[in-house]
Design a protein around this nucleic acid. Sequence first.
DNA 1: CAAAATAATTGTAATATTGCGATTAAACGA
DNA 2: TCGTTTAATCGCAATATTACAATTATTTTG
Lengths: 110, 110
Amino acid sequence: MGLAKVELFTEDQNAISTFAKAFGHPARVAILQHLFKLNACACGDLVNEIGLAQPTISQHLKELKNLGLIKGNVEGASVCYCINPEKWVQMKAVMATFLNQDLNDNANCC
Amino acid sequence: MGLAKVELFTEDQNAISTFAKAFGHPARVAILQHLFKLNACACGDLVNEIGLAQPTISQHLKELKNLGLIKGNVEGASVCYCINPEKWVQMKAVMATFLNQDLNDNANCC
DNA sequence: CAAAATAATTGTAATATTGCGATTAAACGA
DNA sequence: TCGTTTAATCGCAATATTACAATTATTTTG
């Protein structure tokens, strides 16, 4: 199938998995880390930094942009990308509800 | 291709994306949330709780178990699953280094 | 204006993921 | 022991993801 049965799950569960999926490829993790380090940078810089072809980087950037985690501004011939702080904060809140669940003392197996 | 070029990235980036990938499906999110709520439960209970077929749940459980995030103990005819607290804590630490990066004030676009 | 630089888009191939029916294996109960 | 319950595994179909060459669109520069 290859198609997740989204309708079976809560909005929260779908939101968590959607964000997690965005981080589910090392290239997207690397892109985001690089944007954090430099505040902003062009697509071409990311192509040089990471060893993937330009269309591949462009595709990963598109996914992150569609999710709203990054913003892109045309700067002459190049495009300047950066983190979208508001969305990043929102994402962190969503992930925190999942990651910071309480580990009960009797959580160990049976 | 469908094959991530793992060798291009740091160990940290690959670790982050591997954990994130595990959370990149709502069924696995739901399974983990349910295990947190009940401390431990059988595969069959998860099949009832979530609306997916038994082989599908079994497959998702296998992925989580391979990553080490959950443990499974045979309890007679059924199998008791629970969170692996040590691995969960380790995963949280890895994800925190990524999620808690500093949002620089001048992070806004160009 | 023509050539160069930059990045998006298109198209395609290879591989991965998701889901489930059918089957199998193991443990339990009458 | 035989049927039942429980869950793993196998095999398959449908879809998604990853990667890139080729192309296109836009802007800059000479």
